[in-house]
Design a protein around this nucleic acid. Structure first.
Lengths: 181, 181
DNA sequence: CCCCAGTTTCTGTTTTTCCAGAATATACCG
DNA sequence: CGGTATATTCTGGAAAAACAGAAACTGGGG
């Protein structure tokens, strides 16, 4: 008796797995996440193995990965020596943690590289000006996005929700010359 | 004589390629994009082949892909029968087009699936309530994000830039009870 | 201090993705 | 209407990623 008895749950897990592959997350990891997300009680690794038909080793690696994102955590279940796992179910929280971790892993190193290249290019008079210009602009752009993200991510969840519901209307605050039309 | 004579340009192109692989974009495609981004004049496919050491066929496929994202376009060069290609250099524009296309390709189908599953689960009394609940919440969440994105993306670029520079300060507009502290 | 359930790391295999070159198609010119 | 230059699609092989199973490790009992 598990969520996998339901075709809709199965469909969700499969889709989530595919989705993962399109965003650079391995299929098994995404499937494990989907399974835990749908389940309302902690699951031990063995059970994940049975349900998703994955090798024990992959489940172990996958769980480690999900924990490093902070969207799955180990919990202890009374009277069972095995580790059990549960997923974050607050979707805002989940999104924030995933984006934060991906920024750390991929965006930050990119910004670091761009900073280095920008610095070197500014001194190198043999570099074509348009190359320098484009690297510098890319650096500024990604840095700015990154800083914006770091600021926004610390806002309280309810504020974020409100802002999102506002949608395009936030623009009113910045361009007061443009009335409701 | 090309941008590839410069080590910094080379480094950028290689890094951009790797970056691609981490986000589900194939390395060649990302490299072609980086090369065109750094170059200040239209390049014909053959030249991309020489510069990046890729097969002609892959360059063709890659360019098609980049064009489908709308971040590279074909231009004609006086006195040359071959197609030439240039990349979008406005980074906001680039970001918007990439995100729009990825939403179309990956997020929209996901929302569609979630809608279907939600609908079916609401009628299926045999489904555990927590499964229904979690699918429904995921559906609402992603839909909301999607709608927010569609609204924001139509805002004029300068407005977006201003909003971004505001950073966390936008929160002031929504929670007026919290002064500057 | 040894045993054993539970977990992680390692290694060879399978699967998937990527890509070079060949084959095919399309546009342009005389 | 050929012929040539350019571009795209197809296909088999190479490279990379994912995975299963075995081996190694860990940490509580007894």
């Amino acid at each position: 008796m598990s969520v996998l008895d339901h075709d809709d749950a199965k469909a969700f897990i499969l889709h989530w797995g595919e989705m993962g592959t399109h965003w650079g997350v391995n299929r098994s990891v995404a499937q494990i996440h989907a399974l835990l997300y749908l389940t309302d009680h902690p699951l031990p690794a063995d059970e994940i193995v049975d349900l998703l038909r994955l090798a024990r080793s992959n489940v172990s690696t996958g769980l480690k990965e999900l924990q490093s994102y902070g969207i799955v955590r180990r919990v202890h279940v009374e009277g069972d020596r095995r580790d059990h796992f549960v997923a974050e179910t607050d979707l805002w929280e989940m999104l924030m943690r995933i984006t934060a971790e991906r920024k750390r892993r991929e965006v930050d190193p990119t910004v670091a590289l761009l900073a280095e290249l920008s610095a070197r290019l500014s001194k190198d008079s043999s570099a074509p000006p348009y190359v320098r210009d484009r690297i510098v602009r890319m650096h500024e752009f990604i840095s700015t996005l990154g800083n914006w993200y770091e600021q926004v991510r610390t806002l309280p969840k309810p504020t974020l929700v409100t802002l999102m519901k506002l949608g395009g209307k936030v623009a009113r605050f910045v361009s007061p010359r443009k009335p409701k039309s």
